[in-house]
Design a protein around this nucleic acid. Structure first.
Length: 404
DNA sequence: CCCTCTCTAAGATCGCCGTC
DNA sequence: GACGGCGATCTTAGAGAGGG
């Protein structure tokens, strides 16, 4: 799974035995003086540097120089084995690693012959492939009456298509190369483009997974940052004729034990958080000239639907919002504001208002993003505050999660 | 000298289609 | 929805290079 090690097993054991000595020397910051010199010499005596090649001699200019260069290279490799094998932080756990959500795997780029297949199979080669397959089977049976054919239809087809692809002219090959680019596939081959229904189906099944996904994300972010997290999400449901639905997920509480919605109180919460967001959604998704489709979905209905979907998934013990009884559905507003610009302006106003009424605690007001290294200076600046912050972190792992 | 970033090879996976 | 063979493509994480 990883790149090949340069060491043999025996060498590794040998190096490993000397690790404690290295760690001690390294701690005293004298590995370069008191550890490496003897180490590389001993290693070299045990496993001599291979003789230089002609190419290396040519490169270096003389046999002596080449030998020396090669020896240094091997010595460096030996000594750097220690730093490379005693790190506590791997290259992937570095301080500047950002939080990320695992992205969906990229659909695989087609191979050239596969692109050719996509472009020509249905329209041109299918009957030929069938014929080739039949012929192959008949011939096989004539020679081996009782055995199963060695190749499957798939193999015969792939062989056939590869052959035809190789015989194609440059123009066709160029088209195939273009087709390999995923964005071009719908354009160059409308027959293969996904119908809207399939896209909607994919959307809907993703949306069905949203409540749990948001809860998991919120919980994970709380754990990783010590912050309180609120996620708003919403949009049309393909399943129910485009009804616009809103999901809210709150993680984290005030010192008094209030979650975000309790803290604001129902009225403020609705007026300042829910409604503006819903207006925003309507401005984003409602279509001009079309009647509103959104409906209120009541608590019971939502609970029912959601518990069904939850049963289908593998429950994990830590995400069971139903138990908390905090589920609510929030249907769309009944009056749809047609002017998008107006709504957005309103939303902005309300959000400013929100900020005024409920300002960030001073300590938590975000600092301007630290620019890239003016290295030394920056280090001094951030180190202490980060330590001090630790005491302010909300340590509880028992945060309730709400998905409404 | 310490830390971070890039490169790399191994291993996993996908995509091709018709049949059971 | 598993299967069949093939091999390019994607993912992973450690080795090694390189910056400060």
């Amino acid at each position: 799974m990883t790149r090949q090690k340069w060491t043999t097993e025996e060498q590794e054991v040998w190096l490993e035995e000397r690790k404690p000595a290295f760690l001690i020397a390294n701690q005293k910051r004298c590995a370069a003086k008191s550890f490496y010199p003897d180490l590389v010499k001993e290693f070299r005596d045990k496993w001599p540097v291979p003789p230089v090649t002609q190419a290396e001699i040519d490169d270096a200019g003389s046999v002596e120089l080449a030998t020396r260069v090669k020896r240094d290279k091997y010595d460096k490799r030996t000594s750097s084995w220690y730093p490379n094998n005693t790190r506590t932080l791997s290259a992937h756990g570095g301080a500047n690693e950002i939080l990320k959500i695992k992205s969906q795997p990229q659909p695989r780029k087609l191979q050239a012959w596969q692109a050719y297949h996509a472009l020509t199979y249905e329209s041109k080669w299918k009957p030929h492939v069938n014929k080739a397959w039949t012929t192959y089977k008949e011939e096989w049976l004539a020679e081996h009456p009782k055995e199963k054919p060695e190749k499957t239809r798939l193999e015969v087809m792939v062989e056939f298509m590869k052959g035809k692809f190789n015989e194609e002219n440059d123009d066709m090959k160029k088209r195939c190369e273009e087709y390999r680019n995923p964005e071009m596939q719908a354009v160059l081959n409308p027959a293969k483009a996904k119908p809207q229904a399939a896209i909607n189906e994919a959307f809907q099944s993703a949306i069905n997974l949203l409540p749990r996904t948001l809860a998991t994300i919120g919980e994970s972010l709380v754990k990783q940052t010590g912050w309180n997290i609120t996620i708003l999400a919403g949009g049309p449901m393909p399943d129910t004729d485009g009804t616009i639905l809103t999901y809210l997920s709150h993680s984290g509480k005030t010192k008094e034990g209030d979650s975000f919605d309790k803290f604001l109180g129902k009225k403020d919460y609705d007026d300042h958080v829910l409604c503006p967001f819903e207006k925003f959604l309507h401005a984003s998704f409602s279509m001009d000239g079309e009647d509103d489709k959104e409906k209120e979905m009541d608590d019971e209905e939502w609970k029912k639907q959601n518990s069904e979907s939850e049963e289908n998934e593998n429950q994990t013990e830590n995400v069971d919002q139903t138990k908390n009884g905090n589920k609510k559905s929030v249907g769309g507003l009944s009056e749809y504001e047609k002017s998008k610009a107006k709504n957005i302006a309103q939303l902005k106003l309300v959000m400013e208002n929100l900020n005024e009424n409920y300002p960030f605690p001073e300590d938590l007001v975000p600092k301007p993003a630290l620019k890239k290294p003016a290295a030394k200076k920056e280090k001094k600046e951030i180190q202490q505050p980060v330590e001090r912050r630790a005491s302010m972190r909300n340590k509880g792992g028992d945060k309730d999660r709400y998905v409404m």
